[in-house]
Write a protein that binds this DNA or RNA. Sequence first.
DNA 1: GAAACGTGGCA
DNA 2: TTGCCAAGTTT
Length: 287
Amino acid sequence: MHDFAATVVAWYHANRRDLPWRRDGFTPWGTLVSEFMLQQTPVSRVIPRLEEWLTRWPTPADLAAVPPGEAVRAWKSLGYPRRALWLHSAAVAITERHGGVVPEDVDALLALPGIGDYTARAVAVFAYGNRHPVVDTNIRRVIARAVDGQAEPGPPSRRDLTAMEALLPEDRPASAAFNAGMMELGAIVCVARTPRCDECPLAAQCAWRRAGYPPYEGPRKATQKRYEGSDRQVRGRILAELRAAHVPVTDAELEGVWPDAAQRDRALAGLLADGLAVAAEGGYTLP
DNA sequence: GAAACGTGGCA
DNA sequence: TTGCCAAGTTT
């Protein structure tokens, strides 16, 4: 029963993928950047952007020294570009308030823009080896199945942190490996659509398997809105235009990116409100 | 707690 | 083709 964690840790050490943020000598700043990029974005899309980013800005001070628009431009099409803005702001705060060193204290990390419960603990654990429960979508799914016997986790809750804490080994290095191992298990074995239960190290202890794989009964996730034709798509189109241009983009040019004027105006207003675009002489630019 | 917030790949 | 999913955070 309590070899649950030991099983995950042993499996992790034997099966972990070779990813950039697991290389020897990877810096806390690199971990922070990777965690920002990995928020809601698949590993395969993150890796090339991460390598470019760390080559160009190897420290927080390097990023803090350029305008935020440069971060938005380098973000390219990773999605959710406010993350680039938040990462830039975080770099400024780290440079000004933390002497250029990524903090390892969870509360200090939580105080930075764009960092929530997941990212703060991920940095504290993966960059510094501290002992905290890390909870992401993978871990929520593994716990739901292996521990709770449910096909899917319920809605996210602060109680998820408590559940993970209860499973966490006391030993610091083991607790870090357990966090990483649970995420890895959810990412490559206990996946959302077609779990590979025949390859799972927890199969013998899995409550969901023991119960006969009952289907999920709880509240349904809200269905994701269609992207084609959405305000999000229009924002993306306008921002792509601003990223590509190095002089202000005019209203006339923006008319070409989306025909519906009302929707275009709404999207532009949103970008301006978010600080992803600024009014300039004759048009709009990145900040 | 719900809704908003990008983009791309896969079944 | 459509729907689901992807290392979440903010308001």
